[in-house]
Design a protein around this nucleic acid. Sequence first.
DNA 1: GAGTTTGAAACT
DNA 2: CAGTTTCAAACTC
Length: 780
Amino acid sequence: MDTPERNQIGTSISKFEDSPVFSYINNLSPIKPVKSVHITQTFNSLSFSSPPSVFTSPHVSFHKESRFLKGHNFLDSSKSKVSSDDGNKDCTNEQAITNAGHLYNDSNDLRQCTDSAVSIEDASVEAPCEHTEFAIELPQTLKYDCGSPDCHPTPCCDNETVSVLILPGNSASVVAYAQDACENNPTEGEVQLQEISQVEPKAEGAGCDWESLISNDTDLLIFNSPNEPEAFKGLIYKSLDSTPEFYNFPPQLLQSSNNVQNMQIVELVSSSSQRETEDHYQPGAASDQLEVDKTQHNHANIALLADNPNEKMDNEPASTLHRGMRRRCLDFEMAGHQRKNPADGSSSGSCMSQSGKKIADNDKHLLTIKRSGESQRCILPGIGLHLNALAKTSKDYKNVKPETLSSGEQINLSSSSSSLHLPTTSQEHQHPLSISASSERDMDLAQDGLQLAEDGSQASAYLVSEEFNQNSPKKKRRKLEPAGEIEACKRCNCKKSKCLKLYCECFAAGVYCIEPCSCQDCFNKPIHEDTVIATRKQIESRNPLAFAPKVIRSLDSVPEIGEESNKTPASSRHKRGCNCKKSSCLKKYCECYQGGVGCSIGCRCEGCKNAFGRKDGSAPIGIEAEPGEETESCEKSVVDKALQKTKIQNKEVDPDSAFPATPLRFSRQLVPLSFSSKGKPPRSSSFLTTISSSGLYTSQKLGKPTILRSQKFEKPSQSVPDDEVPEILHDNASPIVKTSPNSKRVSSPQCDFGASPSRRSSRKLILQSIPSFPSLTPHH
DNA sequence: GAGTTTGAAACT
DNA sequence: CAGTTTCAAACTC
């Protein structure tokens, strides 16, 4: 009860407190609001803390991603469930999505959000695995400004709130619920139904998976109290400022969540604006209302998206997090009850309507989140969606996209082109089936979700879009997004591999091919999910690390999402090492170079001149350090820049110097976590976090987080490159200053990681006098 | 945009 | 494990 949350939450909480649920939660609540921590940090901590459970393949960076994925999942799930027609919803969805995707990017997102001024009032979701009902309530106000007339000018973002709703549950329950609502309130109910219908298909199966996923993923805050009918499945409080809290949930809770049939939800944010919205919003009432109201008023806020407190939060009281309330249905039958409940008169109707709205809102929240991410868009270029995530996300995205599109912010979502792709909200609505399908995926998504989120920005979007497309032909294909995103969307151009081999960047990255792909006879699509998975498994059977990120970064690298999180430890290396003979490791032909890492002993390259670090151990040329630091995504961006520079500079000077440090940063923000399996940054945008492919797939279909986890765990190596680290790290560890031929001094990437940003700054220092090869390098 | 180069992936 | 082939990205023009 005493939880700090209250303080933060403020008034909203008070209501909440009144509710038994609240008290219950409090009792349980392990959750503690995390305050100060930056979101990015949170992620980091989170992600790092746990190995990339999601992926089989070891990805160092994944940890972070994984969590994001979860977030996505939630979002997705919510989306799926909620397809909202309302433009408002769209907005929310967008936000939510953005949020999810941008956990890392928080700062950016927040900024954007503020700009966008999206406010999400509430989201209450009920997800029933069994019965869980997913009611998302959105206050009318939710509509925030997206441009919809209804929307309040108040910028949600300002208030910031990003709320993410996670809905696990079976869609069925939701549907029923909707139906009830319809009965009660035909108009509202219909709308809801529509939305719900979309969701329905998935829901049932998914719900359970979700839970498991969520629980597994841990990152998610979900927990259910089986006992309580209405028990919250999960509440997450989070102050925007403090992102991290999510993870704070006690394990117990998490576990409990597994048991729980219901899903949880979450989220959100809140800001004064939200509150305002809430105020506007008046819950219909009725039995359900309580829940709804709670949700509305007391939104469970999830810090998931937490934005950088610095940026946005500061403005906002932040404190408030909406609480997501979920009803829980102990029994499937219960679900039916719930359905009835909603149906119950006004309440149901109102609830329904509300719920429906809420759902939509939830999505919106997601969207809103995305918005925040918008800023990120650009940044995010790389978010890669894993197939798993994609599947889910796609669905979710679908929902979201539309909304986002409506808001227009979506477009921004960078790379997330996915969002862009998102065709339109309409699609979502149109394709309930897809949603159902998504449900499974969603489950998986929970795991992958993080990735999605990360990748999400870009890849995910793509994937999603694809899925949507495939799944729902009806749907309007993704609205093209802003041109900017398109870049991120770049994909493969496979002609003979059917995109089922590692030749295919998409496949290798664990994502489905998307429209942007120019591939022929592509099987790497959700439609061929089975094939993809089977193929993937085969490949993994041969090489368990086949889908692991090619560039392994030392744990140190774990950077905070925020700023330096990107910093890759100096130890970062290419998984297998390159075998370059003619490119001197100075071109993207070289995977090491492409990945922004120096060549290591493991490389068999000839005439290595890798600017990031030579095989011989010679210190990488100044530039190196930076690139290494960045995540793959970042790397790509960095690399690209570096390459460009190198091209320019190299012509004159050694390529080594070519890489600029700055780009990395930039990229980082965009895609902090992600790193493509290949490390193919090339695509710039796609940094999908590589999720272990296996994990993804498994998660997708199976929706069994556990399995995935196990898999993931199996591959320790990926998770931590410690092995590699030693040499490199050591080198890096010591802040080595390298001078680029250009005369720039560069600290080794490691330095960046380990070191504070200050180092970076130091990098820029130019030391012409210093020999290109720093004696510093410990290596021979 | 076509053609070439390159090196990873896949195959033997 | 080594050698060869296939493949698609990266690169050049």
